[in-house]
Design a protein around this nucleic acid. Structure first.
Lengths: 235, 235
DNA sequence: TTCGCAAGTTTGTTGCAACAAAATTGCGAC
DNA sequence: GTCGCAATTTTGTTGCAACAAACTTGCGAA
């Protein structure tokens, strides 16, 4: 996931100024034309934070938050007392700024986000950025994977595959699901190709500990702390 | 004389954003509470430019212009067609921007102004703490980089690039992010061009120690203490 | 029923050609 | 001297065919 920031506002001047400010800090900024843009980009995993100008519209963050815990939402309110309907949005936002707000606060927040982890209203949460499972740790910001302190070199594709597994470690991902999640939309890849890359990841990880990749016959792959043999009685 | 810019606006949000943007560029910014402030500060000979938000009030620039030819006036208009009464102000302004305006235009203008005024330049900037990483040290005030005590000669662009990496040393910066942060806003540069400059920086730094630039394939660049344990991912 | 085993499935691994990305060089513009 | 970019070289990555290994299933014999 790249570190893109989406701004949703009807105030063109605000957007231009914010864009300038954020670009100066090295953030990649996009303007959301409407709620659909937010949906599309967030679902494509292209966005790390969304700035919502309170004057833009009402928007229920809840559905986003549930599916994308690693995306931060920043709310810009026009008045100290939020209008009706924003109650829930406020409760769900990670940062609420009341206009006029000091851009430094926004930048401070985003820089912290970039370096550390997902920041929420309740403080720093290690939900996404260091992704963990057993003795494995993946940091998407520094693009590093380490196991037991050893850095594990992975290619970009291997990184994406492992990240997808790490998001829901116990869930078995079908080959098609992995292809959909880790390859570009137009790519046409044989399901068996997934096997090959899982093999590479498996080998890379096994260098520093027991196998973490669980093959679920005729279903797909998942992570497993111990390569536990299926405890199904036979026949 | 410091390069002070006065902003005259009733829009607190605009002021805060502009202040931030301009402060980032090294300008000193003040808010004018009213026309009197303009008078006072301009008469004190501390102000080199005045930004007047068209929504603030009508203001006849003529008396100012006559007495203070060295002060530039920038007018921000809300509509392409100025309301009555602004005719003369427009004619007298040094720069007129219609909202929504691109902050780059304002900066461009002010920069030029500053360059012209550089005759009396004095390096009285506040001392920032130098940026460090491993055996590398960057002093933004003196604009010098040294590694292991050796001074590393860098061009301005190389300096900006390295500085941006140093701000968050472990974080991988995409080429687009580096372009956004280190090139002027209007510059259009190919992402590949970043490679070339990273190569130059890399070479310059390697003169006094091991490689510090970490290339993260298909992501971007970062700094790394141990360049890479020549582990190649297995394919 | 349980066991052995052959036939059929599914998964693991390897080598390599094709491709993609990054490093480097050289040149023209300023 | 600095910069951007096109062109070239170098390096790294990916997909797939081919084969090996592991696992399942079906079925006959004990």
């Amino acid at each position: 996931m790249e570190f893109r920031i989406l701004i949703y506002s009807r105030d063109a001047q605000l957007f231009l100024l914010l864009q300038h400010v954020l670009a100066t800090e090295g953030f990649v900024v996009s303007l959301a034309g409407g709620a659909n843009d937010i949906l599309k980009l967030v679902f494509n995993d292209r966005v790390r934070a969304v700035v919502i100008d309170g004057s833009a519209t009402r928007l229920d963050l809840y559905p986003f938050r549930a599916k994308h815990p690693h995306v931060s939402f920043i709310l810009l309110l026009n008045q100290p007392v939020p209008p009706r309907g924003f109650g829930s949005a406020m409760a769900d936002a990670d940062l609420v700024l009341t206009r006029p707000f000091d851009p430094s606060l926004l930048i401070q927040f985003l820089r912290r986000l970039r370096v550390e982890a997902v920041v929420t209203k309740r403080g720093t949460r290690s939900a996404e950025t260091p992704l963990r499972f057993a003795d494995l740790e993946m940091n998407s910001t520094t693009v590093k994977v380490r196991r037991n302190g050893h850095e594990v070199p992975l290619t970009a594709l291997q990184f994406r595959l492992l990240r997808h597994l790490l998001k829901d470690p116990e869930v078995v991902q079908s080959r098609d699901a992995l292809i959909a999640a880790c390859w570009s939309r137009e790519a046409e890849v044989e399901p068996r190709t997934v096997d090959i890359h899982m093999g590479h990841i498996r080998r890379a990880l096994k260098k520093y500990g027991p196998d973490l990749i669980r093959t679920v016959r005729s279903h797909g792959y998942a992570l497993a702390a111990e390569a536990s043999p299926d405890n199904h009685p036979l026949t």
